[in-house]
């Protein structure tokens, strides 16, 4: 079994990392979301994102091979303690302690995620195109969930104010989702993705404008970092994710 290599590997890995951390963040609301039904819905959506992450990590490790990827190998990649191996966007790393931020991040991320899957829907990597088709069957529901809540909450005075304040906090970090890894150039050249992700950013900004009814400057890309630096929130997040693994590093799973 041959896994991906070079720029294509880095490109798929960045997508996998975002999905993994976003899923982890959503599931951390289990038991503390505003009401019981939402608690279940939000953590279930998180579970979907973890499923996408597992699929993408398996593509990184197995390429287009039909052979199943060894679970332990997949875990080793997904829970790698070395921060240098990660390519996550900072939006997926930060901790949101209040529901307004969690909900706005959910909407911002899933709206961008739709554009991201569209770009790989006709990928020359068939496993990735297949993952895109499968993901979209779940993602429309995630967007309906986020939009349903925003439909109710944005017109309410206090809730609307808190949500727009959360948007103002999160937007400068969220634009980093479109920050490419160095390998994206190679992924575009190989037809693994149709175009650089940032080409879809103006569309995303338009969606934010109409959803939140706010004036926003034209899409402002912060200086690209190549996703090689981790935010301050990353260390604590990875510790929470590795909590059980770290109890006994020598254990065989």
């Amino acid at each position: 079994m041959t896994g991906l290599s070079g720029g294509v590997r880095e490109f798929v890995l960045a997508f996998a990392d975002d999905e993994h951390l976003m899923g982890q963040q959503h599931t951390e609301w289990i038991g503390i979301a505003p009401f019981l039904e939402e608690d279940l819905a939000f953590s279930s959506i998180g579970q979907d994102e973890l499923g996408h992450a597992a699929t993408l990590y398996a593509i990184v490790l197995g390429g287009d091979s039909d052979e199943p990827v060894d679970d332990r190998q997949l875990d080793a990649l997904a829970f790698d303690p070395d921060p240098l191996r990660w390519r996550s966007a900072h939006l997926t790393e930060i901790r949101t302690d209040d529901w307004a931020h969690a909900l706005v991040r959910h909407w911002l991320y899933d709206t961008a995620e739709q554009l991201r899957w569209e770009l790989v829907a006709a990928s020359t990597l068939p496993a990735l195109a297949g993952a895109a088709a499968r993901a979209e069957r779940e993602e429309w529901f995630h967007r309906r969930h986020a939009d349903g809540l925003l439909d109710v909450l944005l017109p309410a005075p206090e809730a609307g104010e808190r949500l727009r304040a959360a948007l103002a906090d999160l937007l400068p970090i969220a634009v980093g989702l479109f920050d490419p890894v160095a390998g994206e150039v190679e992924a575009v050249a190989a037809g693994v993705t149709a175009a650089p992700f940032h080409t879809r950013m103006p569309e995303w900004i338009d969606q934010i404008r109409s959803r939140f009814d706010v004036d926003l400057p034209a899409a402002d890309r912060s200086a690209p970092t190549g996703r090689t630096t981790r935010s301050d929130a990353f260390g604590p997040l990875l510790s929470r994710m590795r909590e059980v693994l770290d109890l006994d590093p020598a254990a065989t799973w």
């Binding site: 039904e37 279940l40 819905a41 959506i45 529901f141 969930h145």
Partner: peptide, 12 residues
């Protein structure tokens, strides 16, 4: 509301 009730019923 009805719309969110459908969404939440699916997950619950």
């Amino acid at each position: 509301d009805d719309g969110l009730a459908l969404v939440l019923a699916r997950e619950t």
